[in-house]
């Protein structure tokens, strides 16, 4: 293996490690931190299944964002859906066509949707960047990292598009590299500059995930205003740290 391939293998194992451990420990922290009071944003569902629906609408349709601002919603939703479609397309690099999942991924419809999703992804990202640059209020709240995050995603999308539509790479070799990572038999990375940039940026994205605002992805599931059932009168809700206070809280 070339030195370049060795460094990419190390990079990816490091990135996966940081992503899994970093995200895992963050999620563990969210799980372990209690929500001592009932604070769902009302009107809220009165049953658990209602809460599942509410979170589902939030995650799938971005319901609250839709209520807030249609432009941000369109660009944001377009980007995320495109990302999901592109992700499905990329699964062909790690899942072979010899099982049902692989066959589904290999379907023309999944592949072409994934392909053209790159356009909508870029439109979405440019829209979000445009809002950040040109809407005074959004510009005011933006830090350098907010712009860099969009540029990072745009660069990943752009290099991916170049490989899809302009300068193809050896995707069998890429597949061997990707599978090799998973079965712990590292293989050479294709040495086209485009794929090397694309992969490096993806690794960077994975590395910064647990230490950046990308934590909104797990965060939404742990948001007490969205995931609590409206049943405060019916069921007593009390955090572990508040239990001892019951003993000292008053005379009765």
């Amino acid at each position: 293996m070339s030195a370049l391939s060795v460094s990419y293998v190390i990079l990816f194992y490091a990135a996966i490690g940081i992503l899994v451990v970093g995200l895992g420990s963050r999620i563990l922290r969210y799980v372990k931190t209690p929500a001592p009071l009932k604070i769902p944003t009302m009107p809220a569902p009165v049953t658990k299944s209602g809460v599942v629906m509410r979170l589902g609408r939030e995650v799938v349709f971005f319901e609250s964002l839709f209520k807030s601002n249609k432009w941000t919603w369109i660009f944001g939703w377009l980007f995320h859906v495109s990302l999901l479609l592109a992700f499905f397309r990329h699964l062909r690099y790690v899942i072979g066509p010899d099982n049902i999942l692989g066959m589904l991924i290999g379907l023309e419809i999944v592949q072409s949707f994934g392909k053209y999703a790159s356009y909508t992804m870029v439109i979405g990202l440019l829209g979000l960047l445009g809002r950040r640059l040109f809407v005074e209020r959004v510009r005011y709240i933006s830090s350098p990292s907010d712009y860099l995050m969009l540029l990072l995603l745009l660069s990943i999308a752009a290099t991916g598009m170049l490989m899809t539509f302009v300068s193809h790479i050896d995707i069998m070799q890429l597949r061997d590299f990707a599978v090799g990572l998973f079965i712990l038999q590292p293989a050479n990375v294709p040495d086209s500059p485009l794929i090397l940039i694309h992969l490096a940026l993806v690794a960077l994205l994975m590395i910064i995930f647990p230490v950046s605002k990308l934590l909104h992805a797990p965060g939404v599931f742990f948001s007490p205003t969205r995931n609590q059932v409206d049943n405060a009168r019916e069921q007593r809700h009390i955090a572990d740290w508040a239990v001892p206070l019951d003993e000292t809280r008053g005379n009765k």
Binding site: R26, L65, S68, G76, V138, K213, H216
Partner: peptide, 10 residues
């Protein structure tokens, strides 16, 4: 942790 500075609340 979660705010992405989308501006929806601004």
């Amino acid at each position: 942790d979660s705010c992405v500075k989308c501006g929806a609340c601004t």
